[in-house]
Design a protein around this nucleic acid. Sequence first.
DNA 1: AATAACTAAAGTGTCGACAATATAGCCATC
DNA 2: GATGGCTATATTGTCGACACTTTAGTTATT
Lengths: 223, 223
Amino acid sequence: MSLAIEQPVTNADRTFFQLRKDIVEGDIPAGAKLSETELSTKYAVSRAVIREAINRLMSCHLVERRANVGARVVSLTPEGLVELYQVRESLEGMAARLAAKNMSDSEISDLQGLLNRHFDKVKTGESYYQEAGDVDFHYRIILGSKNQHLIAVLVDGLYHLVRMYRVQLGMAGPRVTTAFDEHKHIVQAIANRDEELAEILMRRHILYSKNNIENKLTSHPNK
Amino acid sequence: MSLAIEQPVTNADRTFFQLRKDIVEGDIPAGAKLSETELSTKYAVSRAVIREAINRLMSCHLVERRANVGARVVSLTPEGLVELYQVRESLEGMAARLAAKNMSDSEISDLQGLLNRHFDKVKTGESYYQEAGDVDFHYRIILGSKNQHLIAVLVDGLYHLVRMYRVQLGMAGPRVTTAFDEHKHIVQAIANRDEELAEILMRRHILYSKNNIENKLTSHPNK
DNA sequence: AATAACTAAAGTGTCGACAATATAGCCATC
DNA sequence: GATGGCTATATTGTCGACACTTTAGTTATT
């Protein structure tokens, strides 16, 4: 694979990663209270470690804390999902623009290679594209922007929330082949160094994705 | 005034606000090491409180920490400033778009009132506009977006960095009257509920601002 | 019966001490 | 003289205990 994975070094790191995983994947349900004492026994570390982990989870907007009361996992709402995608549209649009300007030729080649491999899979029908491939595609463009703030806000912050929504509202959905075409056009624009078009296409891509999800949520309001 | 100010309740809150202030205003210089023991004596609190404050400062991207080594105040670089303004352009553009959609009529009236008061000051010459007025203007539009993620990232995160750059690179600069005109046009677009135009104008406004700063930095490379 | 004040329980906020890690300085070796 | 390893020191990471706040349950009063 390609993405340098974050390496835990301290106990608080490990606990933070574990907690984040448990929250994103729903093992700790949305809206649940995070009792420090309870978690410290569950993960076999001191409360100080748990508190540090919770502090970092707050930075990701995965939990909210009220002083002297405690921390809760955020609740997922349709409105929250819409707001999240609005921010993604804005930031990833800018990321695509900057990627068209700042990615090296070899990075762009790699990106095209990634897309071709995806195409083979989509063609042969094994289209469990979304979870791995889609995220990988977006990550590369975000990193390609070479903008540290952009990268930090998206990768360390919002993307875990995106994943939490995806996992818990169960969206592996279709949109596979159409999304693939959109990805292809975005890469084309980046390869042409057309900043303006790259941004527009990425914004549309995310907007479509948002509309797609909204439709599913409103047509199947249950679950 | 108008903006609800964040109220410290715990000791860690107070220490965090104080530290943030000291960093933003340069009392603790950029790049400086943050020794936990040293700070705990200086602010007369335990190391646990300092550690919590430092954790929160990391969320704001005001300090960076390496495991088992310690935390340092971020260093200010021209590249970092450009990256920061790129993110602002993206996010505040979206904020203006959403504000055109979501601000209430009375909020828009208030905003126009604010602008008129600024105009009086600019006209009579007392143009220490920037620091208070400019920030207030941008804050209202960000809050007017009604998008919690957008608000959190900008208000709790990036804006303190913006202020840090402004204070430490000493930019009270001119651009007062021209910036005022740009503000006026943005409000006009919002009042017309023209989302597209509001976003475009805000992006241009921030882009101009960035170019202005870049010119100053490159023509006076010292200090 | 409803409300208010009080009390007890649980949980968070804060602290000081100990353990683990990194840094700087010294010494030995080549 | 430069390089490599060792020791001592300082700093961060982690822990368990105590203090304070909140909350729920209970009692007393109207």
